[in-house]
Design a protein around this nucleic acid. Structure first.
Lengths: 352, 352
DNA sequence: ACGTTCGTTGACAGCGCTGTCGGTCTGAGA
DNA sequence: TCTCAGACCGACAGCGCTGTCAACGAACGT
């Protein structure tokens, strides 16, 4: 029927997995360099040739090999993200914004997780990312002050939400202004008449937790108050619940909780103990998770703009990678208090 | 002072960014192939030589170039993840487990997000990942039934939580058993005496939402009940709140809500309307988010094991990539109901 | 003493692409 | 008509690594 006599010869070859640049070149009757030019949208190719090459690309289903490209250009356009492996709202909320910002800038994200952003685990994660060929690293939701061996980084650009003991030329810190947020929370409670304001902190090995605690303490002292009780949780609702169970009800009329989920746990515990929120006890959270507004007692909380932090982080990292100039090594984005129903004027019990 | 006369010559060279295999080889006095053997932990290298090479590697701070490696081995050990860019608990919770499972198996994760897992956006995401050189794709939190052009995938292994119109040889579906979960929720309400059970669904363009709705309907019919009202939200607490505002209080004594966050919003709305939960209205959620147990009214919900789904997904994908045998093309992991305080026996009002 | 095997090592090619540079062709200007 | 700039295109090398294969010497058996 058809000239299938020649087909077998053509059919013998398909062992090769994917078409290469030279296959396209042969198909289009041009050199592989010209195909390269077309694929990379370079100038100086005649429209007809370009069209023909594009047709051949489509016909063969050609896709450039990223490894070959990376090998010769010495660019991978990959950035590594180190995230803390918990389903904490904050770190995860930023992750998607991170990806979108990176995508827009032509970079892709390689994800790593650490159980705990401690020194050794972090170093391991960075080594891993380096081996994967990333051009920069974003450390999101990092815990404490991390002391990294300079040899680990070796000039690798890093953006993190927490401080890093490292050569500052390749490091930028981008985060919400935790201290200002905490101070706003305390101020809000003060304005409602509260004078004994406690604090339920996050795990203080976390830099963010420490900074919120610091902000609370700072504002309390600026206002001339006696600090209320301080407790420490692990960010989980359960730890908030457990902590609130132990609070002496006479020790404070209000409590600033370091994140929303602990605040929810705390409110649950207060409710069980017959301590009414907000009538007997005002509670302020931190983060403004989406469900905070829709709690049975809508939560007053400090709103963090995670996507702004993410976008800025990517921007700064790319500046570092591409050796553009950096405005500052430490960027704190604004943050605002959202007053809802878990806070109310202090009960007038004549206490100090 | 010092013999700096010879220094310049040595100082001129450091333009080369990173040491290569041959640099290590020169330093150690062996061939580059031998260094390769050591770096890759291959056999047949004398211990002394191996030690010497390792010393040179450390001395020069050598790191293998992943692009060069990928180019010659034709393996990138990268898997792509397509996630829906929302901070929905489910999809994000699985992400970290995904990464850990991949890490253990020697693969790394490249992340992409889509606003909506519709056909065109999904295709774009897959193209993007292919261009990045991934060896397989996991589609997590995919919305509807996706109809992908075969040319897009071209044999690329895919694991997804939703159905895909695609050549089944390279596709495995791994998900919690949504239908069974929904049926368990309905059954639980039935056992408590409820006979009019409504449903607040997720966005029905999402496969998971549709399957939960189907499960609800199936069980309702199996039990011989008249289906209660059906509403549709968008997974957010706000949409649950809004929907619950519109529910006719006589139309149902219980409602099965397609996720926890909508359930929280709904409970908030009921509370505002003076409908007591669970006395007047029982509510069952879905997911078992961490804060569900610590709500003011602890939430009865269907617990999904996201990390189990993630681990299994990675396992199946790697089987696909490495052409190992697959048990089944469709895997549904068990799921269980957790009874807490948002459900109670039906009010005895003599209705039906 | 000799051949054989095996452990160990290195020479070399080439993975698929892009950068450099030089060649050819066109059209404008002299 | 000739020159020359500029647009266009291709030959070639080489990015850093691994796979193949051959060479070498030591250990072993006969």
């Amino acid at each position: 029927m058809n000239d299938s006599a020649v087909e077998p010869a053509a059919k013998e070859a398909p062992r090769r997995a994917l078409p290469r640049l030279s296959d396209v070149a042969a198909h289009a009757g041009v050199s592989s360099k010209t195909v390269s030019r077309v694929v990379n949208n370079e100038a100086n190719v005649r429209p007809e040739v370009r069209a023909q090459v594009m047709r051949s690309v489509a016909a063969l289903g050609y896709r450039p090999n990223p490894a070959a490209r990376a090998l010769v250009t010495q660019r991978t356009h990959q950035i590594g993200v180190i995230a803390t492996a918990s389903s904490l709202y904050g770190p995860t909320a930023g992750l998607f914004s991170l990806e979108q910002a990176a995508w827009k800038a032509g970079y892709s994200l390689t994800l790593t997780t650490v159980r705990e952003a401690s020194g050794s685990e972090l170093e391991e994660a960075i080594q891993y990312l380096v081996m994967r060929g990333v051009e920069g690293v974003i450390i999101s939701g990092v815990a404490g002050i991390v002391r990294l061996a300079p040899s680990t980084l070796a000039g690798m650009p890093v953006v993190s939400t927490g401080p890093l003991t490292e050569d500052s030329a390749n490091h930028v810190l981008v985060d919400s202004d935790q201290v200002a947020g905490a101070r706003a929370a305390v101020r809000h409670l003060y304005d409602l008449g509260h004078r004994r304001i406690g604090h339920l902190a996050g795990p203080l090995t976390w830099d963010a937790a420490a900074r919120r605690r610091d902000g609370w303490l700072e504002e309390v002292q600026v206002l001339g108050l006696v600090p209320g009780p301080v407790l420490e949780g692990d960010w989980s609702p359960k730890s908030g619940y457990d902590a609130a169970l132990t609070i002496d009800r006479t020790a404070a009329t209000a409590i600033f909780v370091a994140n929303d989920h602990m605040a929810m746990g705390a409110i649950r515990a207060f409710t069980e103990r017959g301590i009414r929120v907000p009538d007997d006890m005002s509670v302020v959270g931190f983060d403004d998770v989406p469900e905070a507004a829709y709690q049975v007692i809508p939560l007053t909380t400090v709103h963090q703009d995670f996507s702004a932090v993410a976008e800025r982080s990517v921007r700064e990292l790319i500046h570092l990678i591409e050796k553009l100039d950096i405005e500052s090594n430490s960027i704190h984005l604004p943050i605002e208090l959202v007053a809802r129903s878990s806070t109310a004027p202090a009960p007038t019990l004549g206490t100090s």
